[in-house]
């Protein structure tokens, strides 16, 4: 199925969880936060949070700023 991750189109298998996506994106173990369709997905629920076709996902981290 097709999802949007940080503004780019991405193909993942049906049933892909937030945890799977983080692994696919190479972000395992990184300090990040995730939003699906404008709603925060708590880190503790990544394993059971199943993504759906056309979901819009934002994955963010901390960068230098003032």
């Amino acid at each position: 199925m097709k999802i949007q991750v940080n503004g780019a189109s991405q193909q993942v298998e049906a049933g892909c969880t937030a945890k799977d996506l983080i692994k696919i994106m190479g972000l395992g173990g990184k300090r990040i936060a995730m939003e699906v369709n404008m709603e925060i997905v708590p880190r503790s629920s990544y394993g059971e949070f199943v993504l759906n076709q056309d979901d819009t996902i934002e994955i963010v981290h901390a960068v230098g700023g003032g």
Binding site: N6, G26, I32, A62, V63, G65
Partner: peptide
């Protein structure tokens, strides 16, 4: 210490 929140780079520079 202040930080900003931005989109993670995906796979570009792991």
């Amino acid at each position: 210490i202040t930080v900003a929140v931005r989109r993670s780079n995906l796979g570009q520079n792991p």
